[in-house]
Design a protein around this nucleic acid. Structure first.
Length: 436
RNA sequence: GUGGCUGUAGCUCAGUUGGUUAGAGCGCCUGACUGUGGCUCAGGAGGUCGUGGGUUCAAGUCCCAUCAGCCACCCCA
């Protein structure tokens, strides 16, 4: 069949089974985040375009070519390409620093970037992230990095690697930039075409070029740490010590420079080797200057974001996606035999649902046999069979789909209670069975 | 924005050097004592071979274009 419409490029329909998987991810992460004292915040899905230009940086790819922007009259809004800018704005606008200067937030929701889709990259994608605002304590850096790992642990994902680096403060970066430029300029012609272009735009990008020749040329390049201020080095050392105390293993990777302008000091990524071209599941770092740049007080902060698209891919590759992606069963299926019983079935289903049971029935005029088949496919635990003879006697057939046993129960106010008891008895037995 | 690969039933795919009514498995529907599932068996529905052109006596099969998907580059969660 030739359909007229398809989902826009880079978007995905999450069908019920996949929504189950997504809910499991959300639930697992929420529990872990709340355990760490993070509270959910929900800024709008779009903000003034100027906020992103300011926060992320005018000459970044995200701002220059990836924004979903909507112009109306003299206003311009952009669907959020990331959440940090919006959370920072919300923190300032609601004057949260006056209420409680230090606060920890988390968010879960869709982000939008107008990119060419590929493995683990969509135009609408979901991120689960945190922002801890109001402290420069290096222990907080460590806790945040550790938390990123904890989330993946919760999702039963192993084999990830945590890479950390420091970008220092403004002065450190300025010195580093100069040093890099002085190092690169004499041999600029030997770099790849892209790096030659990057040289003007953003020298730091030469540091993480994947081109082997460039990497070789950069092997003796100056590193930031050796010319950073004592305070910067101390902070980075303290972060590492705290991570060590938490038992969290990590690698120092001077090539992590991050693409968003607001990052300072500690930056980190969590990668899943073998995932594909985009193997970074989590990216984050400090942004000590951002709130001030947005017009607020000088308040330090740190955060990260976990990409759900990549996480889903990792779960699939690890073979643990399917066990969390099953359609939830209807526990009771109500089979009506004969046209005269179909209305009675509808009413009985409603009554049973009101007492908390998950009940479904046939809407396709199926034969009794086919209704049973459907119940089986839906993994119903109990099938109620309602026919003319039963209704005349005020009873109903109750079939236990587990052992195929069947008995008759009176159709009165106690029916729901009896069914609940059956289900509980069954799950108790199952639980005991599993315990052995 | 650039490049590579792919596009046949709901899904996963077969379709030989272009040659008659396009197939399989799974799934779906029906039936095998006209009121009872899972197994088995029998049958059935479902495809303008992504779309539009072209070459040819003849195209799912070759050519061009286009769209979509996947993968990679740039960049990034």
């Amino acid at each position: 069949m030739q359909l007229k419409y398809s989902a826009p490029r880079g978007t995905e329909d999450f069908l019920p089974a996949r929504v189950q998987l997504l809910d499991w991810i959300h639930g697992s992460c929420r529990r872990e985040l709340e355990r760490h004292g993070y509270l959910e915040i929900r800024p709008p899905l779009f903000e003034d375009t100027s906020l992103y230009r300011r926060a992320i940086g005018d000459v970044t790819d995200v701002v220059e070519k990836e924004m979903f922007t909507c112009e109306r009259g003299d206003t311009s809004v952009t669907f959020r390409p990331e959440a940090t800018a919006g959370v920072a704005r919300a923190y300032l606008e609601n004057k949260l620093d006056k209420v409680r200067p230090f606060q920890k937030f988390y968010y879960i929701g869709p982000m939008f970037r107008f990119e060419r889709p590929q493995a683990a990259r969509q135009r609408q994608f979901e991120q689960i992230g945190v922002e801890a605002i109001g402290s420069h304590d290096p222990r907080l850096d460590a806790e945040v990095i550790h938390l990123a790992g904890r989330l993946l642990d919760r999702l039963e994902l192993g084999g990830y690697r945590i890479h950390i680096n420091t970008l220092g403060d403004k002065e450190d970066r300025a010195r580093y930039r100069t040093a890099l430029e002085e190092y690169v300029e004499p041999q600029l012609a030997e770099f790849c075409a892209e790096c030659q272009a990057r040289f003007q735009r953003n020298v730091f990008r030469l540091v993480d070029c994947k081109n082997r020749d460039c990497q070789r040329l950069m092997s003796d390049a100056p590193d930031l740490l050796s010319r950073a201020s004592d305070a910067t080095r101390k902070h980075f050392d303290d972060v590492q010590n705290a991570l060590g105390a938490l038992g969290r293993s990590f690698e120092i990777d001077p090539r992590i420079v991050r693409g968003l302008d607001y990052y300072t000091h500690t930056v980190f990524e969590v990668r899943m080797p073998g995932l594909g071209a985009r193997d970074t599941l989590v990216g984050g770092g400090r942004y000590d200057d951002l709130l001030e740049e947005l017009g607020g007080p000088a308040i330090p902060a740190i955060g990260f974001s976990l990409g759900v698209t990549g996480t889903l891919l990792a779960l699939q590759k690890a073979g643990i996606a399917d066990e969390h992606a099953s359609e939830p069963p209807c526990t009771v299926f109500l089979a009506a035999i004969g046209d005269s019983e179909r209305l009675a079935a509808l009413v009985l289903a409603d009554e049973l649902r009101q007492s908390g049971l998950i009940v479904d029935l046939d809407y396709e005029g199926k034969s009794p046999k086919a209704q049973l088949r459907t119940a089986g496919k839906r993994n119903a635990r109990i099938v109620l069979v309602l026919g003319e003879s039963e209704r005349a006697r005020g009873v109903i057939q109750v079939k236990n789909m587990g052992d195929s046993s069947q008995r008759e129960l009176p159709m009165d106010g106690d029916l729901a209670f009896e069914l609940q008891r059956m289900l509980e008895g069954e799950s108790t037995r199952t639980a005991q069975g599993e315990g052995d």
